[in-house]
Lab assay of single mutants.
Amino acid sequence: TRVETATETAWISLVTALHLVLGLSAVLGLLLLRWQFPAHYRRLRHALW
């Protein structure tokens, strides 16, 4: 049971790290898009909202 718990903890930390990385890359990508294509971003936002 001790090994299982350790594996579970490792998986949880791995998944958390993955989610953090994905979230950060998504935010960075959005910022980059907004910085590179302001007109396109505004049009996209206008279409979405």
Rank of each mutant, 00 (worst) to 15 (best):
H40S: 13
A6W: 04
L14S: 11
V21L: 12
S25N: 05
L30C: 07
L48K: 01
W35G: 05
T16M: 10
A26Y: 03
T16Q: 04
Y41P: 02
V3C: 03
W11Y: 08
F37H: 05
E4N: 08
A39H: 14
T7H: 15
H19E: 09
G23L: 15
L28F: 11
A39G: 15
P38I: 07
P38M: 08
A10E: 10
A26F: 14
V3H: 00
S13Y: 13
L24A: 14
Y41A: 13
W35C: 11
T7W: 08
L31W: 14
H40T: 12
L18R: 02
S25R: 01
L48Y: 03
L28I: 14
S13C: 09
V27D: 01
P38G: 10
L22F: 13
H40F: 13
L31D: 01
L30P: 03
L32F: 10
R34T: 06
S13H: 12
H40I: 08
I12V: 13
V27N: 01
G29C: 13
T1Y: 10
R43E: 05
W49L: 02
T16K: 04
V21P: 00
Y41D: 02
T7L: 10
A26V: 11
R34D: 00
L24W: 04
A39R: 14
T5M: 04
R2Y: 11
S13P: 11
L33N: 00
G23S: 08
L20W: 13
A10I: 13
L20F: 14
L33S: 01
V27Y: 07
G29Y: 01
P38Q: 07
L20D: 00
G23T: 12
P38W: 06
R42V: 05
Q36F: 07
R45F: 04
W11K: 09
Q36I: 07
S13N: 10
T16R: 04
E8I: 06
V21I: 13
A39L: 11
L44G: 03
T1V: 10
T7M: 07
T7A: 07
W49C: 01
T1D: 04
R45Q: 04
R43C: 08
G29W: 04
L24H: 01
L22Y: 02
L22G: 09
I12F: 10
R42W: 08
R42L: 08
L31N: 02
T7Q: 12
A10R: 07
L24M: 15
R2I: 13
A6P: 04
A39C: 06
A6C: 13
H46Q: 13
L33G: 02
H46V: 04
R34Q: 01
S25M: 05
V27C: 12
L33C: 15
A10N: 09
P38L: 09
G23K: 02
E4P: 02
G29P: 03
R42D: 05
H40Q: 15
L22E: 01
I12W: 07
L33Q: 00
L31H: 02
H46C: 12
V15E: 05
E4K: 06
L48D: 02
W35V: 11
L28S: 13
R2G: 09
A10Y: 10
V21Q: 01
L31G: 03
R34V: 08
A6V: 05
L14W: 12
A6E: 09
R34C: 13
T9V: 11
S13Q: 14
T7V: 13
V21G: 13
V27M: 14
T9E: 10
H19L: 15
L48A: 04
L20R: 00
T9P: 12
T5G: 00
A39P: 04
T7P: 08
A39S: 11
V3R: 00
A10K: 14
A17D: 02
L14R: 09
W35I: 12
E8N: 12
L31T: 12
R34H: 03
L33M: 06
Y41W: 15
V15I: 10
W49Y: 04
V3I: 12
W49I: 02
E4F: 10
A10Q: 15
A6F: 04
G29D: 03
L48N: 02
L28H: 01
L32V: 11
Q36N: 08
A26P: 06
L22T: 05
G23M: 15
A17I: 11
A10V: 11
L20I: 10
V15Y: 06
Q36L: 09
T5N: 00
W49P: 00
H19A: 15
A39F: 09
A47L: 05
L14M: 09
I12S: 12
W11M: 05
L22V: 11
L24C: 13
G23Q: 03
V3M: 04
H40P: 08
L32N: 00
W11E: 08
A26H: 00
L30Y: 07
V21A: 06
G29A: 13
Q36C: 09
G23W: 14
I12C: 12
T9R: 13
W49D: 00
A17W: 14
A26N: 02
I12P: 12
A26T: 13
R42S: 11
H40A: 10
E8A: 11
W11S: 11
W35A: 15
F37D: 03
L22P: 03
S25D: 03
L31C: 14
A39Q: 15
L44P: 02
P38V: 08
V15A: 08
S25H: 04
L14T: 13
L22Q: 01
A39V: 10
L48T: 05
L28D: 02
L48Q: 00
H46D: 09
R43M: 07
H46A: 05
L31M: 08
A47K: 09
L33T: 03
T9S: 10
H40V: 06
V27S: 06
R42I: 08
T1H: 13
L22R: 01
R34W: 04
Y41M: 15
E4R: 06
W49S: 01
T5P: 02
A17N: 03
S25V: 10
L28W: 10
H46W: 03
T7Y: 09
L31K: 01
W11P: 10
F37V: 05
G29E: 00
L48P: 00
S25L: 12
L18C: 13
H19V: 12
A10G: 11
L30F: 11
H40M: 11
R45H: 04
L22W: 05
R45S: 05
L32M: 14
T5I: 04
S13T: 12
A10D: 15
A6H: 05
A47T: 06
H46L: 08
R43D: 07
L31Y: 11
L20G: 13
A39Y: 09
R2L: 11
L44W: 09
T1W: 07
H40N: 07
L33F: 12
R42G: 09
T9D: 08
T16H: 09
L24D: 01
S25T: 13
E8F: 05
A26L: 15
R45M: 08
L18F: 12
T5A: 01
A26I: 09
L18W: 07
T16E: 03
L28T: 14
Y41L: 11
T5C: 01
Y41I: 09
G23P: 10
S13L: 06
W35E: 03
W35Q: 05
